[in-house]
Write a protein that binds this DNA or RNA. Structure first.
Length: 574
DNA sequence: ATAGGGTTAG
């Protein structure tokens, strides 16, 4: 009775579904589980249906088949509470029917969304127990679930042990690596895949481009863009967005506009947001806001990310009042403010020294401020020497159980600057009593098509001695220009000499020194840092750009710094 | 019993 199944897909509201359900019951088709599960699946997984109603139907089925369970699990896996699918799967184990490959597939999808690694592992055992482990699709689902639950090592083992891999398998592994902060491995896999003759598709290049963005690997990125054009993958808007993002993060703002204006497919809000963010990162606030204003003309509505990008642009360009106006206009534009918008505006006001106003905005929030907000305010207090406000912010951070080293360093240094040594001691004690974590800083730089990674104080590079020697030379030469190390950025509890040493071997300095010794005169040096560039490095690199006559481009966590002739494109406002 | 499942940017 194929007509009933065809009718199901034509339903576009719950009353339609109910009518069809009534029809199935009257004609006796409800008992034939094919039509019934189709109805259930449609009701549980599409926007026309309703998961609660599907559950209601399910509960009224006297003899449930595997497919009935599958429909509900699939619906739950897509819901806001994917973990419920796992609970449902568990209760299915008591039912008379057996789970099949699809049951496992849907449940694994739920595990991936709920970041439930242990549960994914348990389903994996079931997959073997039920004898469906030879299924390539299911193996890929498993691999993807492990990767999404941050167990990339397990995902790799899955991948290595698979006897057959298709394009989706490669894609799952490449995107997994790219999204799991292992961009090197993502690119390695991408190359391997091409070597054995598997043709990347639009999903593959999305993962590979994302890896290039993270690494700032422009040579690799350009090659992928060539491939994209040769294979007409640029008719896919997602691919265009990823290409734009890649060029933006690799520093090629001109290319960004070229790709954007040459797009033949319809732009989405993500395209526009990527563009606004690109100009924000490059410190061109005016251009970013100009693009932001064009969004509506393109028939699209700015969303919360658009506003965040625009606020970020105001931040990086020091457009304080414009940013504030934008922030205040959000409500009437029907866009909800989230903690990131607040963070951005607190940063904006904080940098301008408007600390009281920033504090009031935090107080006015109807959601809980997060750690980052207080850290932002604390940073501004440090800059403007406001001890009282800094204590307020620090107290909040301590209450929230901060384990970040930077928070303690900021407060400690502020006390030290006001010679409140007792308080400095208290902060030191607090640091000892909790397990204060320091996120390791690292930098990438590309020389001759090879990407080198440097960690703070790193001696792993084969030429580390030359690099350190170069840094000594730099230290000597810049002191002629009146350079004094900005030891403010290091905790005041170690000797001055040690402090200078800690600063001197920051990963971005190592990368720049390596660039100086391994590239020819006048060749620009690009460095890519995972954290924000520190104040001392900022000063030193400005001087290097002057003394060594080199253009140095540093991309930090939030933006680009272009150093030339002793000054930086951020105009020391970042 | 029929079919359905995996990979996707800001």
């Amino acid at each position: 009775m194929a007509y009933a199944e065809k009718l199901i897909t034509k339903c576009n509201s719950l009353p339609h579904i109910k009518q069809l359900q009534a029809h199935l019951i009257i004609t006796g088709l409800f008992k034939s589980y094919f039509s019934r599960s189709k109805l259930l699946d449609f009701c549980a997984t599409t926007s026309a249906g309703s998961l609660p109603y599907a559950t209601f139907i399910f509960n009224n089925i006297p003899h449930r088949a595997t497919n009935d369970w599958n429909a509900i699990i699939r619906g739950l896996a897509q819901s806001h509470q994917p973990i419920n699918a796992v609970a449902f799967y568990v209760s299915m184990q008591q039912a008379p029917c057996r789970p099949d490959a699809l049951t496992c597939s849907f449940t694994l999808k739920a595990c991936a969304r709920a970041l439930a690694r242990i549960e994914a592992l348990q389903i994996h055992c079931h997959v073997i127990k039920f004898g469906v482990d030879a299924d390539v699709l299911l193996q890929t689902t498993l691999l993807d679930a492990y990767a999404k639950c941050w167990d990339l090592d397990c995902a790799s083992v899955m991948f290595d042990e698979m006897s057959k891999r298709d394009i989706a398998t490669w894609n799952a592994m490449i995107s997994g690596m790219a999204q799991g902060n292992r961009p090197h491995e993502a690119l390695k896999l991408f190359k391997q895949m091409r070597e054995i003759g598997v043709d990347p598709n639009e999903v593959t290049v999305l993962g590979a481009l994302s890896a290039c963005s993270q690494l700032g690997a422009f040579k690799e990125g350009e090659k992928i863009y060539d491939y994209v054009r040769d294979h007409s993958l640029d008719k896919n808007v997602n691919v265009c967005n990823a290409v734009i993002d890649m060029f933006a993060k690799c520093g090629f703002i001109k290319k960004v506009y070229e790709v954007f204006s040459g797009m033949k497919c319809r732009k989405t809000i993500i395209t526009w947001n990527t563009m606004v963010m690109a100009y924000a990162m490059h410190g061109d606030g005016v251009k970013a806001i100009e693009l932001f204003k064009l969004i509506e003309q393109d028939g699209l509505a700015p969303d919360s990310v658009s506003y965040l990008a625009a606020l970020c642009a105001c931040n990086h360009a020091g457009l304080v009042d414009q940013g504030l106006r934008l922030f205040e206009s959000m409500e009437e534009c029907g866009v909800d403010k989230n903690v990131k918008h607040y963070g951005s505006v607190v940063d904006l006001l904080g940098r301008a020294g408007r600390l009281e106003q920033a504090y009031k905005i935090i107080e006015s929030m109807n959601t809980f401020p997060d750690v980052v907000l207080w850290q932002t305010l604390l940073g501004a207090c440090k800059t403007y020497g406001n001890v009282e406000m800094a204590e307020k912010a620090s107290r909040k951070l301590v209450e929230m159980g901060s384990h970040s080293c930077g928070d303690f360093v900021l407060l400690s240094n502020l006390y030290a600057a006001h010679e409140r040594w007792k308080d400095v001691g208290k902060v030191r004690e607090a640091m000892k009593s909790r397990d204060v974590k320091k996120i390791p800083g690292f930098s990438y730089t590309e020389v001759g098509g090879v990407i080198y990674k440097f960690i703070n104080g790193d001696r792993n590079h084969p030429n580390w001695k030359d690099i350190y020697q170069k840094l000594d030379e730099i230290r000597f030469r810049i002191s002629d220009y009146g350079y004094v190390p900005e030891t403010n950025y290091v905790l005041h509890d170690i000797g001055l000499e040690d402090k200078e040493n800690v600063l001197c071997y920051h990963s971005e300095k190592l990368a720049v020194a390596f660039g100086l010794i391994s590239t020819g005169a006048g060749v620009p040096i690009s460095v890519n840092k995972n954290l924000r560039i520190c104040g001392d490095c900022h000063i030193v690199i400005k001087l290097i750009s002057k003394i060594y006559e080199r253009e140095i481009i540093v991309r930090d966590r939030t933006r680009f710094h272009k150093f030339k002739d002793g000054s930086c494109s951020c105009r020391d406002y970042w």
